[in-house]
């Protein structure tokens, strides 16, 4: 019996427990992203309020909104796909967040890389398209067709930017990119090294976050918030949660590519908030473009700037 227990102990010692840390990271990363996203939503609304010379919502307003929406007593579901669509919309961003390295946590960034991250950020639009499709509301259908058109528009400069950045760092691994930028200080930041790509990336970020003047698929006064038109209660609550993740993912991706990630949480979150504040501030002083104008603009200016940036990077 002695040798049996000894063997069992050996077997136990041989088991690698590092995956427990990974599980913890996979739970913590979306949680932190959500809390930071609540702050970003608050900032969005505060910026809007201040630009309109209002006081704006109180500190915990985004949280109260989400709690209230999930606590609705009657829920209007249009079927199974409607519900799965919302889960896909949030799930896509949760998956994307685990691929984004943050200070102290890499999550799946080593295994995933930039292409997988880009792929994950497209899933929410597709999930939303599925869910809205079952609502059979004409406004929702128009909204989704516009959302997918918008994705077509901003993905062209986005892919150009991603390609240029990957070429510059010689890697698709976000952890390597951050390490390369942090090793050399501010002078090696993506923004300093490739200013044209950073500019094109800012354009693409504005489109990705769906802020004015590229807010074509929400358009409250025109198509009654498009995809959200049939969403009430927990469905809208899910989309509010998605918005938190969306703002965080956009900001954090830009910070990772161009601003050297973060040495610790304070600088990281500071950079994320500053970067996200730029599209929000621009949004509040612009009206909305038409769909075809948006596509034309995206395929012209950011694409040209991006291609020029690639030419400089490859030089």
């Amino acid at each position: 019996m002695d040798w049996l227990s000894a063997m069992r102990l050996d077997a136990l010692a041989a088991v690698d427990f590092h995956w427990l840390g990974l599980v913890l990271e996979l739970m913590l990363m979306p949680l932190i992203a959500f809390v930071a996203g609540l702050g970003l939503v608050l900032m969005l609304r505060k910026i809007a309020a201040r630009l309109q010379r209002r006081v704006g919502p109180p500190l915990l307003q985004p949280l109260w909104d989400i709690i209230k929406l999930h606590a609705k007593e009657t829920q209007t579901s249009h079927g199974l796909i409607h519900e799965i669509g919302i889960v896909m919309a949030i799930g896509g961003y949760v998956a994307a967040v685990t691929l984004l390295p943050v200070p102290g946590m890499n999550g799946l960034a080593q295994q995933g890389g930039l292409i997988a991250l880009l792929y994950m950020t497209m899933i929410p639009s597709l999930g939303l398209a599925l869910g809205v499709g079952q609502c059979a509301n004409p406004n929702g259908s128009i909204g989704i067709s516009r959302a997918l058109t918008a994705m077509l528009a901003y993905d062209v400069p986005m892919v150009i930017v991603i390609f240029g950045v990957a070429f510059h760092f010689g890697s698709l691994n976000l952890v390597h990119m951050i390490a390369a930028q942090q090793a050399g200080g501010v002078a090696t930041w993506g923004m300093v090294q490739m200013p044209l790509l950073a500019l094109a990336g800012l354009f693409a970020l504005q489109g990705m976050l769906g802020k004015q003047p590229f807010e074509i698929y929400v358009a409250p006064a025109e198509i009654a918030t498009g995809p959200m038109v049939e969403m009430g209660g927990k469905f809208l609550g899910g989309l509010f949660v998605m918005q938190c993740f969306q703002l965080y993912t956009g900001g954090a991706l830009y910070v990772t590519l161009f601003l050297g990630g973060g040495e610790h949480w304070l600088t990281f979150l500071f950079k994320v908030f500053v970067v996200t504040a730029i599209p929000m501030t621009i949004a509040m002083v612009f009206p909305r473009y038409r769909t075809e104008d948006m596509v034309r603009l995206f395929w012209k200016w950011p694409t040209m700037i991006g291609l020029l940036g690639i030419a400089f990077v490859m030089n």
């Binding site: 309020a49 209002r54 704006g56 919502p57 109180p58 209230k68 009654a224 918030t225 969403m231 009430g232």
Partner: peptide, 17 residues
Amino acid sequence: DMERLGIQPMVSPRQAD
């Protein structure tokens, strides 16, 4: 400024309280 009190306009009956 109603938004101080957490009141904001919405456009569809499904979303509204």
